[in-house]
Design a protein around this nucleic acid. Structure first.
Lengths: 347, 347
DNA sequence: CTGAAAGCGCTTACAG
DNA sequence: CTGAAAGCGCTTACAG
């Protein structure tokens, strides 16, 4: 037993076991240990293989990824930038990505951008410094750092929201425009009039396309949106509440409201209740995303179900493609996942 | 201009700028560049300092953390293990920790344990391989790997749930026992009888202490809990629903139900509604955590407000203490944060 | 089949 | 004030 190994037995808290500890203990070179660890086993004799494996198990050796990373210029880290962890819909996407990732030996660094370009840039810088192998950018906002990043070698997959104009990379999400139009068709079919919209920030492709699809389909169905019935909100409940308040303050009230996401719909719902307006008798509400909590906490909300659970595997597939150099350089390749119109009692 | 620098101008996608690129460009050694980067500036002349800084800015150099980490045996990574990201309460804690952390130059690796000891162990192993500087363990479960980890050098802070018996480390959370007893006092004061409980897994210190505090205070107030009115649930809505179903199936129904967390209360609430039972007229419900969504989505739920927003700074303080070697080795040092009893219409 | 050696991107005593 | 050199924990051509 080496001195190091001996001291491990004595000390309460032990130093990290390194590759040369294993090598010494097994009586081989570190090259051989490395080969065993990395499964280049056909280059190692059966006998040696077993002995080294035994020592590895015995000493509970776990190769420091950092050493390998430095040598191979390749970490096993993937960053997920997310606008708001407390939005359960985003959290569910994060969940899905994390579980797809852990299966491939990667670990996820989580960064909260809060929809703030400066924070997004800060984290993009940080992630570059950490030499992450790839970035999943959920809810990208336009920023100088993002444009700079596009010129570097770090693969980025855009999730739920397309890259800003002039930036290229695979996109994983749904056909928001089409989904928006289906909400309009539903309203038309029900004969709701006049219709209104509380949409999300139009700088977000998801919010913009949802709204445009809705607006255009409504117009095609013979109902042009009254500008006073169109409001832009942030993607949270407070903003939904505030904008519903304005929308419902006048004498002429909308009969149905398209909401940019479920959180906005929750806020609008609350305001309706406060005003004594029945949903859907007086005002119909339609959400977007199908927040996983809906089933329990808003089982009344008609919404567009975005398949958050299947985002993870698609994001990983796209990252793999980028790593293998298979993705086209200057295109936004779209991986559109199927959504579902979820009709419940709010319409 | 060096060849490398020249080629950077030409290529669309550029290789990483390294310390020796900067050194060459600035006409100094890499030692000097390192000193400038690390602010050992009093050892560098004003003139050199400025020149190097200019080159760094110009080349947009960001030191690879991995190089520094290998040399100093110190990464800037902290792992957060979390039972369930889609529980908004946990997500809010993650949020708080992440934002406290990013201020100190650390990045957070997020791992989903799903309350599964095997997954927890898998991630503990991974995090050791990543040489994380510390671990925040939200909702620890007992596991062989956790016990092994306790013998190593990686600082662990236990969040919301205390370490299993025999494992030591700082704990950040609330006084769950006291909070549980306050729920009982409230029920007693309202004259609710008989009282019931749907508690979380008793292997979790938080769940256990909440329940025991409630049970004991109830007994002290002259009301011993009827065993048939005590049910153990998982910390989610489905389980809350299922257990409420059982609890409310018999002829003799509880007048008030203590729920191990808000999710359980949501599930119980739904079952009450389905049975046509009024809350609180027929059944009173009390939750735990005060999920950030409550204000919007369950404004009726009386609950214990756990100050999730202030977890982050306390967790970071404890990690700092561990890094500075100030924490006692074999004690569970408790950092108890103030909670608040949030009375709303469900009681 | 195996080992000695170079090198990944940094930091930091040491010498000047 | 500055630089040459060693070394952090690995991998991998190269030589034997």
């Amino acid at each position: 037993m080496s001195r190091r190994a001996a001291s491990r037995t004595l000390l309460a808290r032990t130093a990290r076991v390194r590759i040369d500890d294993v090598a010494r203990e097994a009586g081989v070179s570190i090259s051989t240990v490395s080969r065993v660890v990395n499964g280049v086993a056909n280059k190692v004799s059966e006998e040696t293989l077993e002995r080294v494996r035994a020592v590895i198990a015995d000493m509970d050796y776990r190769p420091a990824r950092i050493g390998r990373a430095l040598r191979t210029a390749q970490t096993q880290l993937v960053a997920l930038l997310i606008p708001d962890t407390t939005n359960t819909f985003y959290a569910a996407i994060a969940n899905s990505i994390e579980s797809s990732m852990s299966g491939t030996g990667h670990s996820m660094i989580l960064c909260n951008t809060g929809e703030d370009p400066a924070k997004q840039d800060h984290y993009l810088d940080e992630m570059e410094a950490h030499m992450v192998r790839g970035i999943a950018l959920l809810g990208a906002v336009d920023s100088p750092g993002l444009r700079k990043m596009a010129r570097r070698n770090i693969p980025i997959v855009f999730v739920n929201r397309k890259p800003p104009p002039g930036i290229y990379g695979p996109f994983v999400g749904i056909d928001n425009r089409k989904a928006g139009s289906e909400v309009a068709l539903h309203f038309l079919q029900r004969g709701f009039r006049p219709c209104a919209a509380i949409h999300g920030p139009l700088t977000s492709s998801a919010s913009r396309e949802r709204f445009e699809g809705y607006r255009d389909a409504l117009a095609e169905g013979g109902q042009r949106l009254d500008p006073q019935f169109v409001r832009g909100a942030e993607l949270n409940m407070q903003s939904g509440y505030d904008n519903a308040e304005t929308l419902l303050a006048g004498r002429k009230k909308p009969r149905a409201i398209f909401c940019g996401n479920d959180l906005i719909a929750y806020g609008a719902f609350r305001r309706c209740r406060e005003l004594g307006l029945g949903v859907p008798e007086d005002v119909a509400l339609f959400g977007f995303d199908d927040n996983p909590l809906n089933e329990w906490i808003a089982p009344w909300l008609s919404t567009v179900h975005v398949p958050y659970d299947s985002f993870g595997s698609t994001v990983m597939t796209e990252l793999q493609r980028l790593w293998e150099g298979k993705a086209p350089a200057r295109r936004v390749e779209q991986r559109l996942l199927p959504y579902q119109i979820q009709l419940r009692s709010s319409t």
